[in-house]
Amino acid sequence: MQLTRRDVLAALAAGGVAVAAADVDDGRVEAALLEGTPLDPDPLSGHVLETLVAVAEVVYPSTVEGVDSFVEQYSVARLRRRPADAGGVADAVTTLDQYSREWFDGPFRSLDAATRATLLDQMAVDTADPDPTGEEPARVRHFVVNELLFALYASPTGGRLVGIENPLGHPGGTASYQRGPPADVWSGVGRTDDGDGPSNPSDSVDSGGTDGG
């Protein structure tokens, strides 16, 4: 499933980064992303961004496409408005690299995907409770992994992967809760093809998603 710029803006809006959801059509996305006075025009180094993408590639499902541009646009726009968090993200990336160099002789982003997943596992990031002021695994979980998981699963495309076009945190309108499962959305267990109940096969699932006014 392809992550789009629309998903970037939806994920940003869920975290309180002001973007005009009503203006979200592809022709205006760049302008929307760049609007306002940037607090920090370059909140994250290229290395940090590439590391975030490298983490996303192992914590996101393999069926998701467009991960690099989604993560880069989301992270730059979000952390530009949240400079305090940018430091936490950069520090967490440094921590990942320290472990990576110690165990696998190179920075995290240089590892192959299987080794990256192994590292997160060995570092116990998978079982860590997210905590911005906690131990190293807890900070990596908070600033890197959960930052990325929140961005994906609070976006319409991430929600659709699981069978919900209007996930928690996304202002997807008040139509979808009334509808039955669209055939193209439901890909999980329990799927029925008997057309039971009202349904709407339309894929314009987030058409109600403006929060303007």
Partner: peptide
């Protein structure tokens, strides 16, 4: 909710998605 379940999960990637779908 899938978002909250993902944020609290102890697995990632395809395993996480499978578990969320379940």
């Amino acid at each position: 909710s899938p978002v909250e379940a993902a944020l609290a999960a102890d697995e990632f990637g395809d395993d996480l998605l499978d578990s969320l779908r379940e």
